[in-house]
Design a protein around this nucleic acid. Structure first.
Lengths: 100, 100
DNA sequence: CGTGTAAGGAATTCTGACACG
DNA sequence: CGTGTAAGGAATTCTGACACG
């Protein structure tokens, strides 16, 4: 479940190279709660490959003129739907014993 | 083929946390040509998850008392065998049209 | 051989703030 | 709102070297 993709090991300078976003932008999207890097003891941000991909999607949205607040809302809705789908599947499977 | 596992994005300090090896050791194994990090423009080393795993294997060998030179030789032989196997498979497949 | 350490310099990252709009 | 920038400090990383063994 948690693979290389989700391990937070990339520093912000490398994220900058990977995404093309400035350090300022990357930090700002965290301030707006679009992205959640981990922190080392000393306080430096660490990102995963999943974070990098998310940041690239955010960059696309921003280019389209979408505001950070909207992007955050959209992300929350996407997750809500994923959770609901997951719950419904669980209900269905429990009811009809579909799996195995 | 080249996935997250092989992308060189991890700095030496993080490799230290991930492997438990000291910076001195990590750099030394590079000097002995057991590991090949990339360098940023400025010269800082960048490692992949594959590198981290390899370093952990190296650490195990070292604990067993195996010298770096031996470890390097072993790695070369492993690769040679993998290459030979690959070539033989190619020959066989070409001869018998095994695939498709 | 393999690893520790002190040394000095250069680049990284952090935060809070002012600026523009 | 989103991003640039200058500011000062703290931690990171680099190399070459001496040390021990």
């Amino acid at each position: 479940m948690s693979s290389y993709k989700d391990k937070k090991v990339i520093s912000i300078g490398t994220v900058n190279e990977l995404t093309g976003l400035t350090l300022r932008q990357i930090r700002y999207y965290e301030e707006r709660e679009l992205i959640f890097p981990e922190r080392t003891k000393r306080g430096t941000r660490k990102y995963s490959f999943a974070d990098v991909e998310l940041l690239m999607k955010i960059a696309d949205k921003r280019e389209e003129g979408v505001q950070t607040y909207e992007i955050k809302e959209d992300m929350l809705h996407e997750n809500k739907e994923r959770v609901i789908e997951h719950m419904l599947r669980g209900q269905l499977n429990a009811h009809f014993r579909l799996n195995k």
